[in-house]
């Protein structure tokens, strides 16, 4: 994990991506390019289409129109596991750990699926768990973890085998300020340690403002603002979207 990244020019691009369900446009012609090494915040009121966009970018939801491109190559026709193998990983809001399996195996699964032997995968998993301070929990069934640890294991699983991009879906939801600080520290370290680009969905503005250099705001599936944390915070359209919904 200590060797450096060979190229910083990889990009993950949503090009005019729309996702329509019957009668509802969940994501409406969204454009964004995520670069390796950066942390991009994706925010918006509930139902804005943030998770749907992540689903579209990771193969879980085929875009109704538009394309998802990895360094210029269209990947939106690939299966979720195919996209993971090309180095785009994600976490889930609900954690979705393999509850009956030990914590270490939760991370090993990703490593063996991406080509490691079980022995190498175990060593790799322990390295990641060690970084997240979970190595003493390695043999515990994932189902009994408190949710703060659950999120960390989810992050470790996503970071197995050094993906180029990782999409984190509300890793700090429901956490106290103190717990948020820990997660922020982890998210901040990801680009430095793994060289990957991070897309962070989060409702907690403190977390978003604390770690993101750039923010993309969605409302009702449409992009309503993009910019630095300060720009977005002072944008009247953004303020209106949040107040209007709450």
């Amino acid at each position: 994990m200590s060797d450096t990244v060979n190229s910083n020019r990889q990009t993950l691009e949503a090009r005019q991506v729309s996702v329509r369900f019957e009668g509802l446009t969940a994501v409406d012609t969204v454009e964004e390019t995520l670069h390796q090494g950066e942390i991009l915040g994706l925010i918006g009121p509930n139902g804005a289409g943030k998770t749907t966009l992540v689903n579209a970018m990771t193969g879980f939801q085929a875009p109704s129109s538009g394309d998802v491109l990895l360094s210029g190559k269209v990947i939106s026709k690939l299966t979720p596991h195919g996209i993971r193998r090309r180095g785009i990983a994600r976490t889930f809001q609900a954690g979705r750990l393999f509850r009956e399996m030990p914590v270490s195996e939760n991370v090993e699964v990703a490593a063996v699926s991406l080509g490691y032997s079980r022995r190498k995968a175990h060593a790799h998993a322990m390295e990641l768990l060690n970084w997240l301070g979970l190595d003493d929990r390695a043999d515990v069934p994932a189902g009994i973890l408190p949710y703060t640890d659950e999120r960390r294991v989810g992050i470790a699983r996503a970071l197995a085998m050094r993906p180029q991009f990782v999409l984190l879906d509300e890793p700090a939801a429901g956490m106290s300020d103190l717990e948020c600080d820990d997660i922020m520290q982890v998210v901040r370290e990801i680009p430095e340690r793994f060289g990957c680009g991070v897309l962070l969905i989060e409702h907690n503005m403190r977390v978003i403002m604390g770690v993101c250099a750039r923010i993309h705001v969605l409302d009702s599936g449409k992009t309503i603002a993009r910019g630095t944390p300060t720009e977005v915070q002072n944008d009247p359209v953004v303020i209106n979207a949040y107040l209007g919904h709450s």
């Binding site: 990983a89 979705r96 009956e100 090993e108 990703a110």
Partner: peptide, 24 residues
């Protein structure tokens, strides 16, 4: 005990998460 057994068990626990972890 094999990597294939491990991968399949992960889909038993959570099929969506297994796909996200790269499991076919």
């Amino acid at each position: 005990r094999s990597k294939w057994g491990l991968a399949l068990r992960s889909s038993r626990d959570d099929e969506v998460a297994a796909k996200a972890a790269g499991v076919n």
